[in-house]
């Protein structure tokens, strides 16, 4: 049970890190880092294990945030909105995924469609400033965003807000639970077949599996996790704006995954936390533009570290002979992606 022990070790380390974290940084910053980690995990799952490169993970993130905010204004209590914030993006991802995968779209075309859908959402939400755009009692607000909704509270008690430190622990535990669930998913037959599809779609299809359906379900799971991240983000920021749907947001998620390492679950999370924290630090000083540094990191990591940080460290560790146990399967991104039939 190597995998089980690996997962247990990761969770134990992360749990300790969660307890130590607040003594190093303020919980407000830590919480958003965790939320970004969750978002990166969603793309890391569908891209790293399903081979689906989605250029619009931000669409599900934003959709989750908006679904939560609008439902929270209408309901005034956070339990149902919280569930809606997961269900709406999941359903949207399922429909979108079904449209793409049953159409047998390949790599680049998948990228274009997800990108375009994100743009449509962005342009639409951005243009809904007028008072005629209302869902229930909530105005969509256009580029002004939706402020003033009920943030997360203890289920059934609208006045017992989960905020500050307890919100931090809530987010951290959520991330750990989702991580454990995904580890389980990947170890299950569904996950095994998803990886097989990533490696050779045709062969899996010939073995009698319904590739289209499986990819759609995986895509929907990714959408659900991104939506969960969006829901938490809405509760953290206390306002949702169309910027959540922006291409820059989608780009950032991809960068996190690439830098952290595909084909692992811890990689994207760590990549997201490191880079988001870096951006936070860069934003505090005025000398260099943070975009410049992020761009440089992306170019350099594609050129020199195409496997990402976590798999490279794994590799180094193995070479040094410290650990004989192979953990996450090395992602042969280069070979699998190179011959994409455009």
């Amino acid at each position: 049970m190597g995998e089980f022990r690996h997962a247990a070790t990761v969770i134990a380390i992360a749990f300790v890190a969660m307890l130590i974290g607040p003594s190093l940084l303020d919980t407000y910053t830590l919480t958003v880092l965790i939320i970004y980690g969750l978002l990166a995990l969603s793309l890391g799952l569908i891209w790293g294990f399903g081979g689906i490169l989605c250029f619009g993970q931000a669409a599900f993130f934003g959709l989750g945030a908006y679904a939560y905010a609008i439902a929270a204004i209408n309901v005034g209590e956070s339990t149902v909105p919280f569930l809606l914030g997961i269900a709406v993006p999941a359903a949207f991802a399922f429909v979108l995924g079904a449209m793409m995968f049953y159409g047998r779209l390949s790599d680049v075309y998948l990228g274009v469609i997800t990108l375009v859908v994100t743009l449509i959402l962005f342009k639409f939400v951005n243009s809904t400033a007028g008072p005629e755009y209302v869902i229930g009692t909530a105005r969509l607000g256009g580029f002004n965003g939706v402020p003033g909704f009920q943030t997360l509270n203890v289920p059934g008690y609208p006045n017992w807000y989960i905020y500050d430190r307890s919100f931090y622990y809530f987010c951290a535990v959520t991330l750990l639970v989702v991580y454990a669930l995904m580890r389980w998913l990947i170890a299950s037959p569904f996950g095994r077949i998803a990886v097989a599809i990533r490696e050779n779609e045709q062969r899996v299809e010939l073995m009698g599996y319904d590739v289209r359906f499986r990819k759609t379900v995986l895509f929907a799971i990714g959408g659900a996790i991104a939506g969960l991240a969006g829901t938490l983000f809405a509760s953290w920021a206390e306002i949702v704006t169309p910027g959540l749907f922006s291409l820059a947001q989608s780009a950032e998620v991809i960068v996190w995954c690439i830098v952290g390492g595909l084909g692992t679950l811890t990689g994207p999370v760590i990549g997201a936390m490191i880079l988001a924290f870096l951006k936070f630090l860069l934003g505090q000083q005025g000398q260099f533009d943070s975009t410049l540094i992020l761009g440089l990191i992306l170019v350099l990591s594609v050129l020199f570290l195409p496997r990402g940080v976590v798999p490279s460290i794994d590799l180094l560790r193995k070479r040094a002979g410290l650990s004989g146990r192979r953990t996450a399967p090395g992602r042969r991104r280069r070979r699998a992606r190179s011959m994409a039939d455009v």
């Binding site: 790599d107 960068v255 170019v299 992606r337």
Partner: peptide, 17 residues
């Protein structure tokens, strides 16, 4: 293909910066 897309995406951020 995908690596080029990502590298040029990085370049675009770099040029904006």
């Amino acid at each position: 293909l995908v690596d080029t897309m990502l590298a040029t995406w990085g370049l675009s951020l770099l040029l904006i910066g």
